[in-house]
Amino acid sequence: MIAFLSGVVREVREHSAIVLTGGVGYEVLCPASTLAKLKVGDVAELHTRLVVREDAWTLFGFSETDSLKLFELLTSVTGVGPKLGLALLSAMPVSALAQGLLSGDSKLLSSVSGVGKKTAERLVLELQNKVPEHLAAPTVGGKRQRVISTAGQDAVEALLALGFRDAQVRSVVSELLASDSEQSADQLIRKSLGRLR
């Protein structure tokens, strides 16, 4: 089992990166949040999970242990393979995804491409009581913050009423709250509209 990989980033692709370590280049499939942190020539440190199938050995990498933990929980659900788990983690921050699972928000999950209504409901049913609550708080400077505020929830509801996609809205509002948790709903809506349009 390959649990951790540290090496020089040789290439960053759409869904993966090539990391050179010990003279071997490993292709590592990563969520968008991890790929955004990788730069060619830099040293990458990734928490990994090796998935072995009859036809392929695939290495998945994550910049944070929380992402890996959620990936493992997602892929423990029947019908959710590693690529779908990666798609969910790429669609929104760990905090928004964990919050969606904890609150039973199957609509949020089904807004992700490739996740149908039944799969979303199964994810909620099987994981609602398994997701650690601390994962639902956004991260600032490597530290988890409190779960989305009342103003944040009001902003999310207002933006959804305007027709924006659930996953996008929650991701943007979570990021804004992570930078300043004291913002009002009006401020969050105004700033979110600038990012969502």
Rank of each mutant, 00 (worst) to 15 (best):
residue 4 F to L: 11
residue 4 F to N: 10
residue 5 L to R: 04
residue 9 V to R: 08
residue 9 V to E: 01
residue 12 V to F: 05
residue 14 E to M: 06
residue 14 E to C: 00
residue 15 H to P: 01
residue 18 I to G: 10
residue 18 I to Y: 07
residue 19 V to E: 03
residue 19 V to M: 08
residue 20 L to D: 12
residue 21 T to V: 11
residue 21 T to P: 03
residue 24 V to C: 04
residue 27 E to T: 07
residue 28 V to M: 03
residue 29 L to R: 12
residue 34 T to Q: 02
residue 34 T to N: 04
residue 34 T to D: 05
residue 34 T to E: 08
residue 34 T to F: 03
residue 36 A to W: 01
residue 37 K to W: 00
residue 37 K to I: 01
residue 40 V to R: 15
residue 41 G to C: 11
residue 42 D to A: 15
residue 49 R to S: 13
residue 49 R to K: 13
residue 56 A to Q: 12
residue 56 A to F: 07
residue 57 W to L: 15
residue 58 T to I: 14
residue 58 T to F: 04
residue 66 D to K: 13
residue 66 D to S: 15
residue 66 D to E: 15
residue 67 S to Y: 00
residue 68 L to S: 04
residue 68 L to A: 04
residue 68 L to Q: 07
residue 69 K to S: 13
residue 70 L to Y: 07
residue 73 L to N: 00
residue 73 L to A: 01
residue 76 S to F: 01
residue 77 V to L: 05
residue 78 T to D: 09
residue 81 G to P: 03
residue 87 A to P: 02
residue 87 A to W: 02
residue 87 A to F: 04
residue 95 S to K: 01
residue 95 S to D: 13
residue 97 L to A: 10
residue 97 L to N: 01
residue 98 A to I: 09
residue 99 Q to G: 14
residue 100 G to I: 02
residue 102 L to K: 11
residue 104 G to C: 08
residue 105 D to T: 07
residue 109 L to Y: 00
residue 110 S to R: 15
residue 116 G to D: 01
residue 117 K to Y: 03
residue 118 K to P: 05
residue 129 N to W: 11
residue 130 K to E: 09
residue 133 E to N: 13
residue 134 H to Y: 09
residue 135 L to Q: 03
residue 135 L to I: 08
residue 136 A to M: 09
residue 139 T to C: 06
residue 139 T to W: 09
residue 141 G to S: 11
residue 142 G to A: 07
residue 142 G to K: 07
residue 149 S to T: 15
residue 150 T to F: 14
residue 150 T to C: 05
residue 156 V to T: 06
residue 157 E to A: 15
residue 157 E to M: 10
residue 162 L to K: 12
residue 168 Q to P: 02
residue 172 V to H: 02
residue 176 L to P: 02
residue 178 A to H: 03
residue 178 A to I: 10
residue 178 A to G: 12
residue 178 A to Q: 07
residue 178 A to E: 12
residue 180 D to T: 10
residue 181 S to M: 13
residue 181 S to Q: 14
residue 183 Q to L: 15
residue 183 Q to C: 06
residue 184 S to C: 09
residue 184 S to G: 14
residue 186 D to S: 10
residue 195 R to M: 12
residue 196 L to H: 05
residue 197 R to D: 12
